[in-house]
Amino acid sequence: MKVVEKQTLDKERALYGSKDIIINECIFDGPADGESAVKESSDVQVNKCFFNLRYPFWHVHQLTIRDSEMTSLCRAALWYSDHVEVTGTKMHGIKAFRECSDVVIRNCDIISPEFGWSVRNIEMVDSVAESEYFMMRSENITFKNVTFKGKYSFQYIKNAIFENCNFDTKDAFWHGENVTVRNSVVKGEYLAWYADGLTFDNCKIIGTQPLCYCKNLKLKNCEMIETDLCFEKSEVEAQIITPIISVKNPLAGTITAPKVGEIIMDDENAKGTIEISNNLKFSKSE
Rank of each mutant, 00 (worst) to 15 (best):
L217I: 10
L219S: 12
E226A: 03
D228T: 10
N278T: 02
I263T: 14
S285K: 12
K259C: 02
I240P: 02
N249V: 09
E223V: 03
L217T: 11
C222A: 03
T208C: 07
C214T: 06
V260A: 08
P250I: 03
I255P: 04
I244F: 04
E262F: 13
K233Q: 11
S234N: 11
A238R: 09
T208L: 14
T242P: 01
C222G: 02
E223Q: 12
E223L: 09
G272P: 12
M265S: 14
G261V: 05
D228G: 15
T256A: 10
I225N: 05
I241E: 00
A257W: 01
F231P: 06
C222K: 08
E262L: 12
I276D: 05
G272Y: 11
I263A: 11
K271F: 00
A252C: 03
I274L: 14
S246P: 10
N216C: 05
S283P: 00
K233P: 00
I241F: 06
P250A: 04
A252W: 04
L211C: 02
K248G: 05
S283W: 05
I255M: 08
P250Q: 09
M224D: 02
I264P: 08
M265D: 13
T254F: 03
L229G: 11
Q239I: 08
S283T: 15
I225T: 02
K284S: 04
G253L: 00
F282I: 15
N221M: 03
S246W: 13
D228I: 01
E226R: 10
K259Y: 14
L251E: 14
K248N: 04
A252M: 07
E268Q: 12
T273N: 11
K281R: 10
K218V: 03
C222D: 00
K284T: 03
T242G: 01
I274S: 10
V236Q: 01
C222Q: 00
V236R: 05
G261C: 01
C230D: 09
T273V: 13
L229H: 13
S285L: 07
I244Q: 14
T227N: 03
T227L: 00
N221Q: 11
N269D: 15
S283A: 11
K248L: 02
S234K: 06
T227R: 04
I244K: 12
G253Q: 03
E235G: 03
I225V: 07
K248H: 13
T208D: 09
K220I: 13
L211F: 15
Q209R: 06
T242H: 10
F282E: 07
A238H: 09
G272A: 10
N269Y: 08
K215L: 05
I245K: 15
K259Q: 05
